[in-house]
Design a protein around this nucleic acid. Structure first.
Lengths: 194, 194, 194, 194
DNA sequence: CATGAATGAGTTTTCATTCAT
DNA sequence: CATGAATGAAAACTCATTCAT
């Protein structure tokens, strides 16, 4: 029999990330993805149920990766709250640092993902924000963070700031170094501009 | 007799904002917009060249509104840098506070706008960020703001944070009050969490 | 405005009957139907939701026509049972006599219609067979028809015989005259071959 | 070691009959047939040239079976014409009685078979109807059957009636017993309803 | 200006068939 | 012979845009 070559599935995802990043989900054609993956159009449907299934797969993998790394930081009881915040910010930038296209897709297609009606992604996202919230709470409890900060607003504040910076960086990775970005973010987050 | 009612153009834009917010630009049908505006499909094309022209119009109006208000704050030499920052944040939330759908469109369709190849919007956006940067520079010069902050990162940091909070608020305006959001943002921005 | 020309809807149905008859439902292309109706492909979708909707429409119209005519015979209390049977047979052949293609579609696509999951057509069909059954019952009650005949089998027997003859005739209307067919059917039905 | 099991060819045909019966020829997938036959998709093409070849095989086997049995009845000079008719009807129902799916395929896919352009099936069918005609002729010659009956119409009449009853029975074999059906058919055929 | 019927280009998806192993 | 991964041709359907009235 014709053996599965074993890399088509991955090739397709990688091609899809690039094509989604370049054209956006709605303007991305399956045929373009297939071509970029050196695969026939029909082969895409051997591995993925349909177009949205490809997008879901990208996000699934990504979130799982994020959680895994986040948990390691979160569970480390030797760290102070502010150190945790710093490490978390670093971690997020690290995940994307080797793959700007993935960052673009992550930022741009969030809405599509939700509009496509797959609610599991809301859960991922909530869970992620809960991590951020937990660290803040811990910091407040230990008297390291200011208690006037609304937790709900905080978590979206930091998520939005990072998400957008990720996008800015991904659009032109050479313009601002990712190190510079993450250190400025950490600084602003902890101390503000004053 | 045919009444020249004279508000079709505006009706269409308002309908479009709602429809774009609900379905996203790509899934929004011209016929749906027309129906919501109580206008025939063909009439949409009397006032707008095509679908993207409607989106461009929404953003044009919006940016002009933002600039006008921003300039007033920026030009007020009686204000301290930190007061300026606070007022600017207030101002942005104010612009959208009466129109959640507009906020959703503003946040979600930014990418489409740019992908559609209309570069004037890059200019709008740059100009807007320049304002933010100018205020920061002024603050640094006056010794009010910390000079370690990278201006380029700062402006995207604040833009991203606000943009996302706008979205969170717009999706469910009753969940978190816009006042609470803007005060927390100002607080975080100036002083950080520590 | 561009006025509805008023005959496109009918043109499409008529073209569809011909194309379905020639190629069968599954091999019939919307584009072929459109071409035959002198209409753009997209116009088909202005009038009909999708391909199966066209088929449903054909059958709806047909069954309604059949019922109307059947009822007139059925309700005529001046007729003897055997006269009713004769008239009903005549009537069915009459309905199709001007439109062989319609007969072909009626006979060949019955299964598709049911497989497509529109159960209203089962009702039509049951109702139709009930008419046949009622006439037989009446005949038995009056002692004109033999009471050994199983009603359930009878109604399918006659339906199948007529349906198939319709098909034979429609495939080549000149081969056997429809008059000859219907008179033989009536004869066989009432008296058998002995 | 690979076992040459030797019944794959038959397994495939049997699976195909079931799948064609359930979904219809056009909606039946080769992969579904293969799965039901416990065989790989590609193996289907080892034994059959293509999809239509499977259908042709089913009909070939079936018709040969029908002819063989028909000839035995037809050639039996000890039988009276009406006895022959009765035996022929019995025989047809017998052929299908153990395999409702085969009956469904036989009835439903007749048209596809002809549309697929294999004309040998027209011959089969003509030959079959000729048998029926011959018996009728013999009966007329012997003065047992009425000579007013048009032979051409007769043979389609009986074919259509039986074909349809076969379908009705096959769709729900428990609803009406096949014995009841065949006895009613014989009765109606010979004596009519009066 | 206003209308909404008509258009047809463009894309996803399916699945019979092939073929490398 | 047997396999099932890979292929790509084919068709339904959508909807922005046009245009006759």
């Amino acid at each position: 029999m014709r053996l599965k070559e074993g890399h088509k599935e991955k090739d397709i995802i990688e091609a899809a990330i690039k094509v989604f990043a370049e054209f956006g989900y709605h303007n991305a054609k399956i045929s373009t993805i297939a071509k970029k993956a050196n695969v026939a159009t029909g082969s895409v449907y051997v591995y993925y149920k349909n177009k949205e299934d490809i997008l879901f797969n990208i996000f699934d993998t990504l979130w799982q990766d994020l959680f895994e790394k986040l948990r390691i930081v979160s569970d480390n009881s030797a760290l102070l709250p502010d150190e945790k915040v710093e490490l978390m910010v670093d971690m997020v930038f690290e995940v994307f640092s080797g793959n700007p296209s993935l960052a673009v897709v992550f930022v741009n297609e969030q809405n599509n993902i939700i509009r496509l009606g797959e609610y599991r992604f809301n859960d991922y996202y909530e869970k992620f924000l809960d991590f951020a919230e937990a660290v803040l709470k811990e910091g407040i409890a230990k008297g390291v963070f200011r208690k006037e900060i609304d937790l709900n607003v905080f978590r979206s504040f930091i998520f939005g700031a990072i998400r957008y910076l990720l996008h800015v960086w991904a659009e032109d990775p050479k313009k601002i170094g990712i190190k510079k970005i993450s250190s400025t973010v950490k600084n602003l987050l902890l101390h503000g501009i004053m």
